[in-house]
Design a protein around this nucleic acid. Structure first.
Lengths: 242, 242
DNA sequence: GATAGTACTCGGACGGTGTGCGAGAGATTT
DNA sequence: AAATCTCTCGCACACCGTCCGAGTACTATC
């Protein structure tokens, strides 16, 4: 009897049955680390169980002893990205600083691991590192005076903006090709297509043309900061009015 | 000679060579429509070229005459989601109303088509409908007094928040299972795992427990609204101070 | 009306994919 | 010594995206 569909996630299962043999030759951590390397080096679609097995010097199906699914493996790897975004301890900094450091940290981590943006769209982030980050953020906001529903909502808002702002950025970089760090070059290479695409929107095109000679990454940073500060300002207003 | 890697996207190619035969038996629109149906009915991983071909009553490979790639097909389908988010004409409403209607519209469209969240993480949104929405939003903001870089940044901020807030919501719903509209039921079914996952964060758990008896969807709506209004407030402050 | 060309359709095949299964190896426990 | 547990892995299955080339039907030209 299948019963009602249950909620499944790596985080709901025992991480490892036990420590039995001295050297299990393969371990969950090892697998996750190797997967991370492969992903960083060759991207999401280069990660197959066979390739991962080869990199680990073991059979492809051996992995399935330590991990139930490919999807579970991806959950584990995604949480590693959240680990890269450090959150300062709440008591020592103001809530705005905590939020900003976290936001920049998460953005940086996602940019460092471009494959992660595809994953955040595919699965919820319930890993220990994601939870820890959310918890610390919540504590900082609580200390600042947020309470009740507003507390959760404020945390969610910062998280949402950070994710939503970073995702298209990285998505862009992904389609351009990760090897191409030369921003000027790809800007040049895509202009003709851009004109075709935006032919119906002369204003939009004009705007993008005017950005040609500003550095792309700093421009992106400014844009991110603008939105982040706006969000924090909006939250602060809500904090003061009560 | 491969040359430098070019920027490729559906939107940069000729949409259809010409109209030659009376009834080409298959058309790009038809394909996109069928794909949409299949996606809505059975989700992203149920969409294969063979299944799509079968649904169209044609061979799987026939599709490749009208569409270069599966990925291109997905770009086309994703843009259809943006089409579902109507943006009121700028001149008749204030910028906040325009932004809010768009944000709610896009969120609704993504919730209606849960597979879309995976796609927005995988590819940039450069389709005509996405561009049209961005253009109208920009016009409304310009009318309101935003200018220069702030204009783009403000539009990006609203877009980013909307995407980032909706994505986790839908991601959640996806893993729970789309057929399960009964919010109470799945809330019940996942509580034990939730406790395991959040065992290290008693405060977090306590907070979620306190939400047990409020309706999940209205709670989500409130959360979305909170963040959106905060963002708009922040933007408005920036608008006034100059 | 014959001929050439264009616009499509489609079956077959190729090289991949995730993963269930069962046989086995080696250490530990009884 | 026997049984049990932990872990590895080759094989096989069903399915995937898509290249290729032959085949069909319609249009344009002579």
């Amino acid at each position: 009897m299948p019963g009602k569909p249950r909620f499944t996630s790596v985080w709901a299962r025992e991480p490892a049955p036990k420590r039995a043999r001295e050297q299990p030759a393969l371990s969950r951590d090892q697998i996750v680390r190797a997967a991370l390397e492969l992903l960083d080096a060759e991207g999401l679609e280069a990660l197959s169980m066979r390739r991962l097995g080869a990199r680990l010097g073991s059979g492809a199906t051996s992995i399935y002893w330590h991990v139930a699914n490919k999807e579970e493996l991806l959950e584990l790897v995604l949480d590693e990205v959240y680990a890269e975004a450090r959150v300062p301890v709440p008591a020592e900094y103001g809530w705005r600083d905590v939020a900003a450091v976290f936001a920049y940290g998460l953005r940086g981590a996602m940019i460092n691991h471009p494959w992660s943006v595809t994953l955040v769209g595919s699965m919820p982030s319930l890993g220990p590192n994601a939870l820890a980050a959310a918890d610390k953020l919540t504590k900082a906001f609580e200390l600042a005076g947020f309470s009740g529903m507003s507390l959760d909502h404020a945390v969610s808002a910062v998280l949402a903006y950070t994710l939503g702002a970073t995702m298209p950025e990285v998505s862009w970089m992904n389609t351009i090709g990760r090897a191409n760090v030369d921003t000027e070059a790809w800007m040049e290479s895509m202009r003709p297509q851009m004109q075709v695409a935006a032919a119906d929107y002369p204003e939009l095109l004009a705007r993008y043309k005017s950005f040609e000679n500003v550095d792309m990454t700093t421009s992106r940073n400014l844009c991110f900061d603008f939105g982040l500060v706006s969000m924090l300002d909006g939250l602060e207003a809500r904090l003061r009015q009560r």
